[in-house]
Amino acid sequence: MIIKQLSIFLENKGGRINEVAKTLAREGINMQAFSMAETADFGILRLIVSDVEHAVEVLRKADFAVMLTDVIHAQCPNKPGGLAEILDKMALHDVFIEYMYAFSEGDTANIILRPTDMQKCIEVLEK
């Protein structure tokens, strides 16, 4: 399933992530998944939130550099080999992944994927 992810460009300086978290908290927006990619002087914070439009609005108002990115949300059983099965399919059909992150709840693991080719990735996952 394609979902919207928030990507926020942040400078590497103390307290920046916290400011994002607090801005969302004040508006009652829940973070469902979260990942941080970083370089020496900047990072990109990637977020899945409960209310995308509202989150974008409040973050922009607070002067954060927010982008909306399409990502794929996939699920697999939360057991050894669950992820490997999905990744096998990707590799078999030459689907490259820019980045991914995952979290698990009970018996299910949720995976957020950013492939180079969205359409192909979905087709492969549906097979």
């Binding site: 992810q5 990507s7 370089t39 900047f42 990637r46 980045y99 950013r114």
Partner: peptide, 9 residues
């Protein structure tokens, strides 16, 4: 702005 580190670099 890019969502990808490689693009920003």
């Amino acid at each position: 702005l890019s969502d990808e580190i490689s693009g920003m670099l």
